[in-house]
Simulated scan of single mutants.
Amino acid sequence: MRKNLFMLEELQELDLKIDGRQGGRQTLLDQMVELDQQVEETRLAVDAKRGELALLEEEKEGLEANLVTEDENIARSEVRQKEIKTQKEYQAVVKEITAARKLKAELEEQILQKSAQAEELTADIAAREADLASLEENMASRKAEIQEGLDRIDRELAADAAAKETTVKAIPASLVKRYLALRERRQGIAIVEARAGNCSGCNMNLPPQLYNSLFRGDDLVLCPHCQRMLFLRQDAQ
């Protein structure tokens, strides 16, 4: 039994190593996703600004069309003004021309404002596009480093899996099954060393008769407190 227990300890060390590597692998995968999200968020921000600019240009074109219409209205009114015979009609046309010119001035002011906003937005988009290009370049380099780390971990996991397979074959199947059940219930630690009369898993004191059984090493001994498998090193004896 003592040999099997030491083999179980070796199996547990391999499992803990695999757990750590898998955790590290998941961290790298999460970093990869985060990098993609950063690029996507930056790209979406650029697209949103482009949408703002397109809407601004559309509004400006509408104002320019209205300005053309007002210019035409003024021109027609000025022609009519020359043909008017009565004072009343003349005053009405003058009023129309005045109102049209006022509206034209307002439209021109709005067009100037839209042009200034469009110019500012165009500069902002250019800066954001430059930032996006730089980010994508940096991210490509960082993702390459992460991929190297993933490849290395995968090689290590493959080696660990092979070593684990060899170790499992050397242990009775019933004992492996019990180990796996304990490992699942005890946060990955199924077998622990008995040291100085205590269980190193829960630090509780072990009964003397149980400790004597460990010295003999004939049977499987469980900690009465945490139910983990116990083993005793030869040097401790």
Score class of each variant (00 low, 15 high):
131 D>H: 07
213 S>D: 08
18 I>C: 04
107 L>H: 03
112 L>Q: 14
205 N>A: 14
180 L>Q: 15
99 A>N: 08
153 I>S: 07
157 L>Q: 02
123 A>E: 11
46 V>T: 14
50 R>N: 15
123 A>N: 13
179 Y>W: 15
102 K>P: 05
184 E>T: 12
210 L>A: 05
40 E>A: 15
97 I>E: 01
101 R>C: 01
95 K>D: 05
75 A>P: 03
21 R>Y: 06
40 E>F: 10
106 E>P: 01
99 A>D: 06
90 Y>D: 07
187 Q>G: 03
110 Q>D: 10
192 V>L: 00
33 V>T: 11
156 E>Q: 13
184 E>F: 05
50 R>W: 06
128 R>W: 06
117 Q>R: 06
186 R>I: 04
172 P>K: 12
172 P>N: 11
9 E>K: 14
148 E>N: 15
52 E>L: 08
85 K>D: 09
211 Y>N: 01
70 E>G: 01
33 V>Q: 10
56 L>I: 08
133 A>G: 02
173 A>Q: 12
11 L>S: 01
22 Q>F: 05
108 E>R: 13
61 E>G: 09
190 A>Q: 00
162 A>F: 05
83 E>P: 01
221 V>H: 00
4 N>R: 02
32 M>I: 14
172 P>M: 07
37 Q>Y: 09
144 A>M: 10
87 Q>I: 15
37 Q>K: 08
97 I>G: 00
180 L>K: 12
